[in-house]
Simulated assay, not measured.
Amino acid sequence: MAISETTAARYTAQDPDVRLMLRVQQDDADAFEELMLRYQDRVVSLMTHLVGKRDLAEDLAQEIFMRVYRSRKRYVPGSKFSTWLYTIANNVASNSRRSLARRHEVNLVAQESGEFTGNPLDQAAVAASGLMPTRLLDKAELSQVVQLAVAALNDRQRLAVLLNKFEHLGYEEIAEVMELTPAAVKSLLSRARANLRQVLEPYLEQGTKVNAGEADK
């Protein structure tokens, strides 16, 4: 899709990360290092939730940044830098899941306790479900139940929630990343919130765990 000069100028003016990427386009190594410092941990965390394995997520994050660098000469700022980056990340995650499925590694969501401990997604998932805990949860307990809730979502719902609640992308930005319409994203997030609520509500209120497979995907 062609990007107008007006659009490119608007994102260049508004987004400091776009300006960094334009410096990367001119082979500025310091600018590329700065972008990696800003986004590497966030990309690794996102990929961990999408593919379920920390070591694999770290490898995929490196691949994502290599794609960013290899694409630098073709880069045109038609969106926020983060939107462009997460579009690449989504493609890499999708390719990885297909590859794992072909090798019959179908358990793609982390089940190990503590995998996501301390991640801001813990509170984001509770917020996305529209629930507030009626009892006090410690960090480890909250992290464990959030893992269960996130595992209950299908791949598209999980990505939409991560981008919306963790990366703070709006409907239009998520639509661009996922190649959907904003209305489709809104519907996807609504279903995701319902599924999160189904898993989280019994536990937050009474401490009753629900199997991830019981949520309606």
Rank of each mutant, 00 (worst) to 15 (best):
181 T>F: 05
94 S>C: 00
79 S>T: 08
56 L>I: 03
122 D>G: 13
47 M>F: 06
130 G>D: 10
27 D>V: 06
145 V>T: 13
212 A>Y: 08
8 A>C: 10
146 V>I: 15
60 L>C: 08
118 G>A: 07
133 P>E: 01
123 Q>D: 15
32 F>T: 07
60 L>E: 04
115 E>T: 15
178 M>T: 05
56 L>N: 01
43 V>E: 10
148 L>M: 02
113 S>E: 12
138 D>E: 08
87 T>E: 14
72 R>T: 07
65 F>G: 05
185 V>M: 01
41 D>M: 09
25 Q>F: 05
26 Q>R: 12
174 I>T: 00
190 S>H: 12
189 L>Y: 07
17 D>A: 11
142 L>G: 05
50 L>C: 11
151 A>H: 04
113 S>R: 14
137 L>R: 04
109 V>P: 00
73 K>Q: 15
165 K>N: 11
190 S>I: 05
165 K>R: 14
75 Y>E: 12
182 P>Q: 06
24 V>P: 08
87 T>N: 10
167 E>A: 07
122 D>H: 15
143 S>H: 07
146 V>F: 09
164 N>L: 05
17 D>V: 04
170 G>Y: 06
61 A>P: 05
86 Y>C: 10
121 L>N: 09
177 V>K: 02
96 S>H: 02
157 Q>Y: 01
157 Q>F: 00
164 N>V: 07
60 L>R: 02
36 M>K: 10
181 T>N: 09
128 A>C: 04
192 A>P: 10
106 V>L: 15
126 V>F: 04
4 S>I: 01
32 F>C: 04
100 L>F: 05
198 Q>K: 12
216 D>I: 13
217 K>H: 01
217 K>Y: 03
161 V>P: 04
199 V>C: 09
47 M>W: 03
94 S>R: 13
22 L>M: 15
105 E>H: 14
162 L>D: 04
24 V>D: 14
14 Q>E: 15
105 E>N: 14
5 E>V: 07
69 Y>T: 00
2 A>E: 13
120 P>E: 13
163 L>M: 10
160 A>C: 06
24 V>T: 13
29 A>M: 10
116 F>E: 10
192 A>G: 08
19 R>T: 03
31 A>R: 02
198 Q>V: 06
10 R>S: 11
57 A>R: 03
94 S>W: 09
84 W>S: 05
176 E>S: 00
175 A>R: 03
18 V>R: 14
47 M>E: 11
9 A>Y: 09
194 A>C: 01
153 L>G: 06
87 T>K: 15
1 M>E: 01
3 I>R: 12
30 D>P: 06
144 Q>T: 11
165 K>W: 13
8 A>M: 05
145 V>G: 02
10 R>F: 14
160 A>H: 06
201 E>A: 14
97 R>I: 02
13 A>M: 12
109 V>D: 10
160 A>S: 11
172 E>F: 00
33 E>D: 07
186 K>D: 09
78 G>E: 07
51 V>S: 00
84 W>H: 07
131 L>G: 02
32 F>E: 12
117 T>I: 14
105 E>L: 15
192 A>S: 09
199 V>F: 09
